[in-house]
């Protein structure tokens, strides 16, 4: 679905005469291979390069070096830009700054309108996508009256209506409250399960990546860790080094293990820790 080879992106700042003032390497030889239908979470602190990567996948930025194929299309070629954007949709952080229309359904129709979809087909898609994110009953509402989580779901519907193979969510929950965050993450999972859309979720909330198929950790423009959530979260110390943190239960499990208790590594969920603790207690009882 997405294949990046040695992708490099440099932000070059120039002074007034056009001389190079500074070069910031936002992506440093990134390799990435995403299979269709995968749910991938990308973690990294602010400025680690994860948003830059997302913008490349949507052909919003041009790489300094390396190649990137989205759905088999080379994003650096001019004629591929629109097809790439259509097959890899993108949801941004600020819900207000990506809703264009003043009525929910008109906003969802904006993408299909741009790609020249016939009118009846637009209506069908708008209805389907709003239903898919559970916002159909708000179709005639003004986006200004919706909560943050609802606005983000509208933004997701707007992308879904373009029938992409893959959706990149660039910190979609950073400006939301806990309820809004849950709504958005649940919606992303439902889309992934129901229609097999590949999802790339960029976030720095650890609780949100627990259910991903694969987690990538980025730091200074490089992919520094990669694996299942369990593999990633079993390395508490390393995550802290990358300015990330770990769900409370994982930290607690780690602390207990360090205190000599027989608790497995990479505990992700509360139920797992409950079972692990009770097992230890039973063993202690028998002795």
């Amino acid at each position: 679905m997405i294949k990046a080879k040695q992708l490099v992106h440099e932000y070059i700042r120039r002074d007034e005469e056009g001389n190079v003032e500074s070069v910031t390497t936002a992506l440093d030889h990134v390799d990435l291979n995403v299979k269709p239908g995968e749910f991938i979470a990308i973690l990294g602190h602010n400025g680690s390069g994860k948003s830059t990567l997302a913008k490349h996948i949507n052909a919003l930025l041009v790489a300094s070096e390396g190649t990137l194929l989205v759905n088999g299309m080379d994003v650096s070629r001019e004629e591929n830009i629109l097809p790439v954007r259509q097959s890899a949709g993108m949801v941004f952080q600020n819900p207000d700054n990506q809703i264009i229309a003043s009525v929910v359904e008109e906003d969802v129709g904006f993408g299909p309108e741009n790609t020249g979809v016939p009118t009846e087909e637009i209506w069908r898609r708008v209805e389907e996508s709003l239903a898919a994110v559970g916002m159909l009953k708000y179709r005639h509402h003004s986006p200004n009256k919706l909560s943050g989580g609802q606005k983000q779901r509208v933004a997701i519907a707007g992308v879904v209506a373009m029938q992409p193979r893959c959706i990149v969510l660039d910190e979609p929950t950073a400006m939301l409250d806990p309820n809004g965050r849950r709504e958005v993450i649940r919606t992303a999972h439902e889309l992934n399960r129901a229609s097999g859309v590949t999802i790339l979720l960029i976030t720095h909330y650890m609780e949100e990546v627990v259910d991903a198929d694969r987690v990538l950790v980025m730091d200074q423009g490089k992919v520094v860790m990669q694996g299942t959530p369990r593999e990633i979260f079993s390395q508490v110390g390393k995550l802290k080094e990358y300015r990330l943190d770990v769900p409370q239960v994982t930290i607690l499990a780690d602390l207990l293990r360090q205190s000599g208790l027989d608790i497995p590594r990479g505990v992700l969920r509360r139920e797992e820790l409950v079972e692990a603790v009770l097992r230890v207690a039973q063993v202690e009882d028998m002795q």
Binding site: H45, A174, M175, H204, M206, R243
Partner: peptide
């Protein structure tokens, strides 16, 4: 701390 990464938040 809204919108900050974990380290920034702490």
């Amino acid at each position: 701390t809204a919108g900050l990464d974990p380290a920034g938040r702490d």
